[in-house]
């Protein structure tokens, strides 16, 4: 393994999003942005491969205002960062994202291994890894829960519904890792301070995408609304009644619903 690339996404923090109950619309202003949760595991998987092989470990990200992500991502053990920040990514679908990332990886001269996580907190589409593999002509291995380089090849375990599947991968691959592959440690103060000194390079969209038609989203967003809440929201403890009365009230209600 000479070069390993970790792709990560900079996402809005769901905890900051406010919902207008009446219109069901989402207020995104003032929302802070954060490193996609599962991508911490992807970066840590890369860090462990670097420890085993001494490879170069590069972070790649494309999105809006991604330069802000560098500090956090680099403090987790990446050697350097290659990022693209463009407003055109604001309504990216999985096609857009994977085309742009493939262009960036191509410009870096490819990699022996590309590590993604299974999904992003915001879209949860679970497409980027396998799409990237198809575009780069690499193998795709998803649901990876263990990963170890052995000489020229790579062995991996996949966590599937019916159990674990062990595989051996020859040649370049894109793997999507599941969160139980590792427990990413909190970056140390030294790592956080060191992150500032690591190389970080911006790239423009026109440098990585030849045909702008190929990054046009294919899925149009027709609406984005909080799901309708049709729950009764009855508090059986209202008025400070005790557990016994609340339970009696609950059993009556459940019997009336016909679910007991």
């Amino acid at each position: 393994m000479k070069r390993v690339i970790v792709c990560y996404k900079w996402v809005p923090d769901g905890a900051d999003i406010r919902i207008d109950e009446r219109t069901r619309t989402l207020a995104m202003d003032g929302v802070s942005w954060t490193l996609n949760d599962f991508d911490r595991n992807a970066i840590e998987a890369g860090v462990q491969i670097k420890a085993a092989t001494g490879c170069d470990l590069i972070g790649v990200t494309a999105g809006v205002d991604t330069e802000a992500s560098g500090k956090d991502a680099l403090s987790r053990g990446l050697d350097s960062l290659y990022y693209l920040s463009d407003q055109a990514m604001a309504d990216a679908d999985s096609r857009t994202t994977s085309e742009v990332l493939a262009g960036m990886i191509g410009r870096l001269g490819g990699a022996d291994l590309v590590i993604c996580s299974e999904a992003s907190d915001d879209e949860y589409a679970q497409q980027t890894g396998p799409r990237l593999a198809a575009l780069l002509g690499y193998s795709s291995v998803t649901c990876v829960s263990a990963l170890s380089p052995s000489g020229e090849s790579l062995s991996a375990s996949r966590k599937l519904e019916e159990g674990v599947e062990d595989v051996e991968i020859a040649g370049p691959a894109v793997v999507s890792v599941v969160p139980d592959i590792n427990q990413p440690p909190f970056p140390s103060v030294k790592q956080i301070l060191g992150a500032k000194k690591k190389p970080s390079q911006a790239v423009a969209l026109a440098e990585v995408v030849g045909d702008m038609d190929r990054i046009r989203p294919q899925l149009r967003t027709d609406s984005l609304l909080a799901p309708e809440v049709s729950r009764k929201r009855v508090s059986l403890s209202a008025g400070g009644v005790g557990a016994a009365d609340a339970v009696a009230g609950l059993l009556k209600a459940l019997a009336a619903e016909g679910v007991l």
């Binding site: 679908d93 589409a125 679970q126 497409q127 890894g129 396998p130 799409r131 519904e161 899925l219």
Partner: peptide
Amino acid sequence: ATRRGRGLAAFLAASLDAPLVSD
């Protein structure tokens, strides 16, 4: 939409340059 199915669908979509609606 099983674990294998999701991966296959995304690889198929990129190979055909087709949109994929997940779940």
